[in-house]
Amino acid sequence: MKCDEIREKISCMLDNELNAEESALIEEHLASCPECMRVFEAFTAVSLAMGELEDVPDGFTKSVMRKVRKLTPAKKRKPRILYFAGLAACLAVVLLTGNRLGHLELPNAGRSSDTAGYVRLKTPEPAVNDSAITADTAVEGSTPGESEAGDNGTVLPDEQDGIMLATEDAATAAVTPTPAVTPTPVPTATPAVTATPVPTTAPLPELTALSDLLIVTETADAALHTDEPDYTVTVPAADGGKIHLMIWLEDARIYCKIAGTDTAWYTIGSPAKLMELLPAAPEPSVAPSPAVTPVVSDTTALANAA
């Protein structure tokens, strides 16, 4: 073994990651190689100097607990996949039927389109007027068992006005009463997205890229990303609320979180694909006019800074 390899092992040995046999070999080497011995001493000294714990200032625990008592109690969460499956199905349907796609905007701080920092997916058609029906459908649609994306996906394109979106609370409420139901497999949203002919003028690749955001490959730790998201996607809901998807692009994966919740996941899409599909933009964005969507204003600086 070369000395540099030995030194990596020395590092492992300090961390108790070597077995007795390996350790014996290293010790043997150390006895005969003063240079490696000095590395061993250096690593040990640094390790000791670093690892010593500090005294915490007085009142630390009291201060934490005072703040904790002001928070709502931490409660066990509803089954995540189920909740999300409902939402995914709903969103996929919205994306597909496309009646109000004009509302769906992807703020794109680094690569703005002509509309000041946004990519507009579609200019809205004159809105259909039966929003009352829409709201009803939304509740039915997110009932477990009926909320399979495939069903919705095939039914709704005919109905044209089927906005299926409920806010997070509505979606949760619709889903929770029957927690015993087997979670709808989330990936079922995919066929709906790719297979159904889409009656919309929105560019399909972009829709696919967006709906990819909703396909969970892996649920993720909600604490993983806490800084400002790279993008947010805002979707108006049937009941007048809004759902904000926060999106962080990692090296090879896209991390999504529903704002204000701990529901987070990795999506099936890749950052490269998403970026590729988004219309390329001339120049770094101007701040978006607050009139367009207030939601996004706080996320614009983000990508520039990142």
Binding site: V56, V68, A74, R77, A222, A223, D262
Partner: peptide, 15 residues
């Protein structure tokens, strides 16, 4: 930051 960490741990505890 360590105060924040504990608060965050508390709110995310269900997850």
């Amino acid at each position: 930051i360590s105060q924040e960490a504990f608060l965050k741990a508390y709110t995310n505890l269900p997850g």
